[in-house]
Each structure stands twice: as structure tokens, then as C-alpha cells.
Simulated assay, not measured.
Amino acid sequence: MRKLAAALVGVLVAALPATAALAAAAKPDIAVTSAADKASYAEGETFTITVTVKNKSSVDAKHVHYTGGDSEGVDDVAYGELSSGFDLAAGATKTVKLTGKTNRVAWQVGRGYVAFELRADNGEANAADNITSVRLLVPGAFDDLGGYVFQGESYDAEWTPQTAGVPGVKVVATTADGKTRYAEAVTDAKGLFRLAHLPAGDVLLTFAAPAGWKVMAGENGEYDHTLAQVTADDSDEPRVFVPAKKVPVSSPSASPSPSSPSPSPSSSSSSPPLSPSSSPTSAGPGLPVTGDKTMLLVGAAAVALAVGIALMLVARRRRVRLQA
């Protein structure tokens, strides 16, 4: 009996991990996606968001409902069935809608948004995909955007009114994807720049520093560009602060020395130089050359000339004798 009891205890102990694993896996897996019914809205316009809820698990989801979220630039958000809740069978998909209106804030910043989370009463196997958000573009407002490019040794350097600026930095504002150019400016002696008449919303600022400076923009200072928010309000205060540090300036490449003139365009670096006694065969007769060989040739020519004259005189005397 003791052996049988021990065996039964062993079976139960061995089965506990498998039972726990089954219990842990017996949860629904809710995945949520959402989309607005229009690409953009006017201030005060009603929007409709379609929410798609899918239960990816083999377990039914009990009372799927809205548990919290956040929003900006919107009023009168009605969650409908997402608030009252509903059951969702294993592997099933359901679409529901929520509505609301954009407000003045959305017009000032160029967009509003709605973000929320759904859960089931019997748990959630993967909480990473049960949160969703929708961006609602509200174009129409414009304003200026100013900032400083200041001297700093690291990307997290802080600007103060006493911090020296970096002049001559070109700043270009484009759409967030960089495809449409809005405006450009150059920092003054204090490092201040101002970009005029930009649309409210996100803009991409790209910086081109003069020689000897490196802009440290972006989250970790590794880039020459950063995103900025344009807000239509009555404030003219600078909102963008980007550090830049001094870097070595690369020296220009050395120019040829005056004692070593560069070859003319018609010359070839692969052709060997001509020796004083040689000339190109295709260039016709060459110019006379000077030196010891020339004197020998002149002497030989003189001797030949003298011999010729002597032979001519002898032949002449012979003709005279024959005639006589």
C-alpha cells in the first residue's frame, strides 16, 4: 500500500507542470486594429473610427471591453459596444465603431488622436496587441517655428541664454517624410533661426553645419535631422534646441609645386622622353643637333667637296688637251 501511495503521489507531482501549462495557455488572445473613415478633417468635424477585434486564441473571450486610453484634440468620444462589452468566440472577428468630433486644439497642432486598450474578463494571453491608436489630421493652421543651434560637447547639452550659438548653420524644414520642402533659414551670430509660415503638425528639420562643426540632432545626437512640432498659437518663443560641437577641419589636398609643371593635355605619361639624338619618325626631318658628331660630319662633307672640285679640274684639263 505504501508503494502504491508513493506511486500515485509521483504521478500527481509529474502531472502538475502540465496542468499548470494548460491553465496558463487557456486565455484568449485579443488583437485590435483601427482606422479612421477619412484622411483629414476640419475643425469641429465628426469622425468615425472602425475598430476590428480578433480573438486569435482557441479559447472564447468573455466580455471584451474598453479599459482605458488617451486622446487629444477631440470631444464627445462615444465608444459604443467597446464600453458595454461583448463576447468573442475563439478565432472569431468583430468590427465595431466609435465616433467623436475634432476641436480647436486639433486645428492648432495639426492633428488629434484617440488611443485605447481592450481586454477580456477571462484574461489576455498577449497584451502587446490589444492596444490601438488612430491619428486624425486637421490641416489649415500655420505658424512660425524658431530655435537655436548652440555650442555643446554632447547631444544632451542644455541651452541657456548665456550659451554661445553656432552661426551659419542652414536649417531646412520639410514634411515628416522629407518629400515636400516648406522653408529654410540660416542661424545668425547667436545661433538663432526662424522658419516662417509652416503648417501645424510634425515637420522634419535638417541641419547643414559649416566646416569645423558637427550637429548632434535626433534622440542620441547621431543625426543631422530631427522632428519638431509646429503649433499655431501666439507665442514666438524658440522651441527647438540643437547642440553642435567643434570638429577638426580636413586640410585641402596638396597642389603641384611650381618646379614640377604638369604635363600638357596632349602629352602621354606612358611615352618615354626623347633622347637628344633621336626624333619622332612621323614628324618629318628633325632640327640639326649639336655636339661632337656634328663636327665630324661637317669635316667629312668639306673633304668630299674638295675631292669633287679636284676631280672636276682634272677632267677639264683633259678636255682642253684633247681639243688642242
Rank of each mutant, 00 (worst) to 15 (best):
A306F: 07
D156A: 08
P265G: 05
T281N: 08
F86I: 00
V11I: 14
P276R: 05
N130W: 13
L198Y: 01
V149Y: 00
R318I: 13
A14Q: 07
L22N: 04
I131E: 13
L227M: 14
K94S: 06
A304T: 12
A18T: 05
G291N: 00
S133C: 06
T180E: 14
T48S: 11
S40R: 01
T174F: 03
A78L: 11
A125R: 06
A324K: 00
E237D: 11
G112V: 02
M216I: 12
P238E: 01
E219C: 14
F193T: 04
G140F: 00
Y66R: 10
A141K: 02
T163N: 08
G191T: 08
S279H: 07
L98W: 02
T19Q: 15
G299C: 14
T52Y: 02
V166N: 12
T19F: 13
G286H: 04
G221T: 12
A26H: 06
A306R: 07
V96E: 14
V64T: 10
S253Y: 11
V59W: 02
T33R: 12
H65R: 10
G10K: 04
T175F: 13
T187K: 01
S268I: 01
S275K: 02
G147R: 05
P261Q: 01
V186Q: 10
K62P: 04
S250N: 11
D234I: 13
K62S: 15
H65G: 11
G308C: 07
D188V: 04
S278A: 15
A61N: 08
I309R: 06
T281D: 12
E222M: 06
T48H: 09
K56F: 01
S271T: 15
E81I: 01
G286A: 11
E184T: 03
Q108L: 10
T50F: 08
A31E: 12
S269P: 01
I131H: 07
S269I: 06
P261G: 10
A283M: 06
E158H: 10
G73D: 03
A232Q: 01
T102S: 09
L205F: 07
S260C: 13
A24N: 15
R2V: 10
L296S: 00
S154A: 15
V51N: 03
K97N: 07
E124P: 01
G308L: 08
D177S: 09
A176C: 03
S271K: 08
R318K: 13
G91M: 00
S34F: 00
P17D: 11
E184M: 11
Q162Y: 02
F241I: 14
